[in-house]
């Protein structure tokens, strides 16, 4: 059987196609991600190119309203940037940070969770205590504190330059315990299996057993939480940017666009805030719905529905 046929006849695809909500959210997500990453090609303007921006164009309403121009479909922001283009570029930044942060937290979490679960004993007790304590502080608070500390240490100017890697680090460090706990739980279950025993009898080193034998079998729950974690990371990024600890105004993400727009809401200029807000909610909602479906499909008993 060819790979294509295998995919076509797989249980996963069948289950997926039968769920209209999952197909719908996958489609929305695909459109959003494609639009974000193709933004340099499809966006009508380049919001990073200051020479094409005219301050006289600022705060223009969407094209279908009085005073709107067909050049700017969704209107312009306070600096005269085309809102549609800025949203597309901003979404790319948000998605990049979201995925980057999840890769970092997954790496940290898998490494710590695997070590903790396999080695056990005092190290395990210590690492899980640390994870417990950090989780009890709520990831938002930890992220806000780390962001605030970085910003104070490095100053506003430098912070703006390296905002993307900073945000990835801040959100990554704030959320690793989720992964560590999940991985540890499945490692503890896998450790008792006979194939691990067999690998040990053959005399494989611990590191090989951990990474090559146990980890592949412990990956399902990691996949399940990964989708939700991407949504969470995008949300954290937006929140951090909104309170001024994230992306600078010159290179806006969805969160900082909302922040820019918020200052103009009181004068009735609602579109600068509303359109990036809708895109952000759509993005997070699509990922969450897909994550829900994946969780139900892969392991109906993993969570209690709460």
């Amino acid at each position: 059987m060819s790979t294509l046929q295998k995919i076509r006849q797989s249980d996963l695809l069948h289950n997926f196609l039968r769920d209209p909500l999952a197909v719908g959210s996958f489609f929305v997500l695909l459109v959003l991600v494609a639009a974000g990453f193709l933004s340099p090609l499809i966006a009508p303007h380049d919001p990073y190119d200051t020479t094409t921006i005219d301050i006289m164009d600022s705060e223009m309403p969407p094209a279908w309203m009085d005073g709107g121009e067909s050049r700017f479909l969704l209107g312009t922001d306070s600096q005269g940037r085309d809102l549609l283009s800025t949203i597309l570029y901003g979404m790319r930044v948000s998605i990049l940070i979201g995925i980057g942060a999840v890769v970092l937290q997954a790496f940290l979490g898998i490494f710590i969770g695997l070590t903790s679960g396999y080695v056990g004993g005092r190290l395990d007790a210590f690492l899980m205590r640390v994870a417990d304590v950090q989780l009890s502080f709520s990831t938002y608070m930890v992220a806000i504190f780390i962001g605030a500390i970085f910003k104070t240490i490095f100053g506003v100017g430098l912070y703006a330059q390296v905002a993307v890697p900073f945000l990835i680090m801040v959100i990554g460090f704030a959320e690793w315990p989720q992964y560590a706990r999940t991985v540890r739980a499945s490692v503890l279950a896998e450790k008792k299996q006979e194939y691990v025993e067999a690998a040990r009898v053959i005399g494989f080193p611990s590191s090989r057993i951990m990474w090559r034998h146990i980890l592949p079998n412990a990956l399902t729950p990691v996949l399940v939480i990964s989708t939700v974690q991407v949504a969470n990371a995008i949300m954290s990024e937006a929140a951090l940017s909104f309170i001024g600890l994230g992306m600078p105004v010159t290179r806006p993400s969805l969160g900082s666009l909302i922040k820019i727009g918020f200052e103009y809401v009181f004068s009735g200029t609602w579109w600068i805030t509303l359109f990036p807000g809708i895109v952000l909610v759509l993005l997070i909602l699509a990922i969450n719905l897909l994550g829900d479906w994946l969780r139900d499909y892969l392991n109906p008993k993993l969570y209690k529905g709460a």
Partner: peptide
């Protein structure tokens, strides 16, 4: 589910 996906500052605005 929709509520979980709306950031608190957006609700506020």
């Amino acid at each position: 589910i929709v509520g979980v996906s709306i950031p608190v500052f957006l609700t506020a605005i």
